[in-house]
Amino acid sequence: MRLSIQDLSFSYRTTQILHHIDVDCDGPGITALLGPNGSGKTTLIRCIDRILRPSSGDVLIDGVSTGSLSAKQLARLISYVPQKMQMSAMRVFDAVLLGRVPHLSMQVSDHDMYTCIEILERTGLSSMMLKSLHELSGGELQKVSIARALAQQAPIMLLDEPTASLDLRNQLDTLKLLTSIAEEQGIMVIIAIHDLNTAFQFAQRFLFMKEGRIIETSERGNVTSAMIEQVYDVPVELQWISKVPHVTPRIYREQQPCQLS
């Protein structure tokens, strides 16, 4: 599966948010979209899934323009996990079953049921499948959202800051789940994420965004401190621990401890 973003721009009223983005992603694995707040990560993800219509440019999946596909056809190719899921009193199973909407005709088939049950087991949600979404914690809700996207069985999955509101345990669980699913099912996963060290640990490729442009693309082994400094305007120190880059802002290292009077 190949995702090509070609000369993509997006404007909201008179403000241009994305500027002529050109990037190709190929094959399974996790790609992290990195950049400061307001750099256009969420907008890019929404444009890829045509939740927002680009002002110009195109997104191609295996050479086919997403603009030429119906909404349902596109939903069979790309699944999307928004930053926040709107709260509903729906049951967990029904929420996951919604992932089958792009595949449904009139009735839920046995295949749809089996798919959802497998995913519930895989994501550890089976014990709470009849619980209302209201009763779940933030981490569990995020899992439901990911499980719903998995039920779409799309070869490309987009996630907008899936770990933003999660504690350390849930962050790790969520990213481990995505890594294993990307490997096993050959899914291309693109994640917008803020935590650089978590991203370096789990993703293989990185797209660095700043002011609506992709200014660097890199594999994990080629990440440099210059790339990060250019994107975030913060001096950083990069250490390699077990072939994984670990970034520390230099400013904090040089700071003196506060004196309490």
Partner: peptide, 12 residues
């Protein structure tokens, strides 16, 4: 009912 973004992502 799960929100506009989710619905659009599902092809609605």
């Amino acid at each position: 009912s799960m929100g506009d973004e989710t619905a659009r992502g599902l092809g609605v």
